[in-house]
Design a protein around this nucleic acid. Sequence first.
RNA 1: GGGUGCUUAGCUCAGUUGGUUAGAGCGCUGCCUUCACACGGCAGAGGUCAUAGGUUCGAGUCCUAUAGCACCCACCA
Length: 877
Amino acid sequence: MALDNQFNPQKDEKEIYQKWLELGVFSASVDSPKKPYTIVLPPPNVTGVLHMGHALTGTLEDILIRRKRMQGFNALWLPGTDHAGIATQMVVERQLQKEQQINRHALGREKFLEKVWEWKDKSQGTIISQLKTLGCSLDWDRLAFTLDEKVSVAVRECFVRLYQEGLVFRDEAIIQWCPRCRTALSDLEVKFKEIKGRFWHLKYYLEGSTEEFLTVATTRPETLLGDVAIAVHPDDKRYQRLIGKKVVLPLMNRSIPIIGDSYVDPAFGTGVLKITPGHDVNDYVVGKRHQLSVITIFDDEARVNDQGGQYRGLSREKARDQIVEDLKNSGLWIKEEEHVHNVGHCDRCATAVEPKVSAQWFVKAEVLAQDAIEAVKTKKIRILPEEWENVYFDWMNNIRPWCVSRQLWWGHRIPVWYCVDCTEVTVAVKTPEVCSSCQSKRIRQEEDVLDTWFSSGLWPFSTLGWPEDTPDLRKFYPNDVLETGFDILFFWVARMIMLGIKMTGKIPFHTVYLHPMVRDEHGQKMSKTKGNVVDPLEIIDRMGADSLRFFLAWNAFHGRDLRVSDEGVEGCRNFVTKLWNVTKFVLLHFSSVTSSKRDENSLINQWIFTRLNATKKKVGECLDHYRFFEAAQAVYHFVWNDYCDWFVEFIKSKDELEKRKNAKDSTAVDVLEEVLRLLHPMMPFVTEKLWHELPFRSSQARSISLASFPEWLKEHEYPEAERQLQRVIELVEKVRTLRGTHQIPGSKEIPITIWAQPRVIGELKIHEEKLGRLTRASKVTFVDQRMTQAEVIELVLKDCSIFVEKEYLGDLTQEIEKRKKELIDKRSALERAESKLQNEKFMSGAPEAVKAGVRKQADDLRAEVLAIERYLKEIGS
RNA sequence: GGGUGCUUAGCUCAGUUGGUUAGAGCGCUGCCUUCACACGGCAGAGGUCAUAGGUUCGAGUCCUAUAGCACCCACCA
């Protein structure tokens, strides 16, 4: 059956994926005696669509999993989706606002959650089908969701255990608050942005004086409503004498103390700092130190509350304008300056956060961090690329309590019940009926839900049935590799390590591989507002999943950026086409060869198997070390250069093809078949398609993904064949270069003469036909005497020379120039080599292999230099 | 303010413990529509490895300093 002109991904990919599903290729089994190998997919947002980052994750993990599966492992790649608390809730809130112009509070918790579930049910299929489009071999029967009952039980169990050990606690503290989301945030969820603001200088008069005042410089004049003191440095000569006195708070006419605290930097601003413990994290700390009270002046949406007197009800921004105006009017304003400073913003909605004192639940991360640090220090967990280990240690060593409560509705409700009748707090996995202390039925559950990352942190085992001791858990936990982007090292990876060790007593995985960030072709972060988002599905639609996957693997350097460009993917698409075309060639000539049988004495066969063997070794090593780019390059190079450019060209003559067909030599098919298996993890679709077209294959399996992965074979090493064919290749290249330099068209055949030692001539004569054909020679003559330089020019190789008669070359000026340049290069290389050999310290210090190499190099160079010198002399230049 | 990484061909990047004449893809130039492939073939040009010192028989690779870039953490009002 003849193949189409090129692979048609739109037509074939869906069908192929369907077949994999039918064959159950992706299913891992708890009963299998095979060694398990487990990866959990970083769960994408349930309402999301596939972006390039997902495509990268999907590709790299699929490569790892498919290879292990082919190697005979019981490979489990566990899919799942994340409820993504704030993100999802925000999407639904926006939709609600747009459609009904109401917020969630107008709808009520229960009704609102119904809406979110509706949205989730509607959109959850999207990302799943998109992962399938990419070819991901996920075990769909185990599809999990972070709000599944199974996972929720694990979340509650974890919370209860931490509570019982005192590792989760409730406390009143200053936290980061998003007034738009109306929830507390963890430190990680606050992103600081440079904002061009103003620096207002204000007068705070000393109590009882209309003359003497202190100048306070602030970026947030509106917070003066909550000032409880002003602070100066205790050693500051300017203000020292005023410590302990009082000032009158502008506009509010409250009297507040002047305190001395070394936190104040005398050199910054005026050296006088207003203290607002209710709305500034540092002020809160200073306030605590001086037992100052806390005044909260904003409500949950950052509008001025009852504490703000006449400003009550104003937004932060309006209050600021009004207060500045009032200060100006009452003569308390001195000046204002431009001031650039960093302001924290909500990671999700980009609203400026408002520090706020409130009761929240915290995890004692600093305790959990100890074992997590140890696990990486002792290399029980490796983080790759290794430079991330330091980043990990740095963060872990400075970790602070993790605020896990969120005033959201979409998420795991915290399993805590407060008794109305006594002060008891009941914390339980199963919803209690009564207070655990006074047995009162009047208990109410904590309103807050948990940070999304709390449930994600349990993902490697909650998906396998923990805390039950399930067969899945026993088989597939710990996982093997955790592959994800470095941007969620703290958010997710660190928490999995902490919670994994704490809950199960085992490390959750032995390797963390952090892939680069996907960027556009100019290295810019992709964003909707910039309009530079490259849609993986659109690329797949145009060029096929294999092209995109191969491109991503090829570009998964150990660096920090991965730039996606159309041209790059096109290059990979071209490679898919090349593979397709060479398969067409093989089918055209070798369809009648239906079993593996080959001439073991053929040097070409030996040579291509040796090359293939080197490639298999390289690919295997690279994949073992997550060097996807090198693996992709190695196989690309083998297919395109070794197999297509040389092997196929070597055997392309009528005679050679006939000979091989008659002998039923299967080398061409065998090598291609192995290449397809080697490539399958990276390009699953086209390799599956082509594999079935071959006249025979190594395995009876109904899918290439069930066949074995090619491994290096000792018996396929033929160094002698490699050496000989390497010489043939160099010889052909020399002549071709000469033809190129002299612009001899391919249609013009010219005779060549080859001189060498008899032994070498013997080796070359075997390849006479190939030499002639590939150099487009009219005749190949072998001689054991050098030719006279006056009539010919000599192309020098290490152990042979090629002579071409001048009459075929026309003007030699260019050629001579080239030789002169070559001579300079070779001479200097020779000098370097010789001086090394004369250097005693080199001869005593360098390893034997290096010395031998240099010696051989010097010999070769010397011969070449002499030959070129002789050539130039004889030609009269 | 603290930290990490980067600087190699026109562009994007490899280069594993120092060791033989520094590589790839794309782009560029010339030739070729030869019966797998123009999404192709053949050939070619192009690099004082950011700069200055140092260690070494030997440095793109190790050390120091400088310059520039990127990112992370902190968040001085």
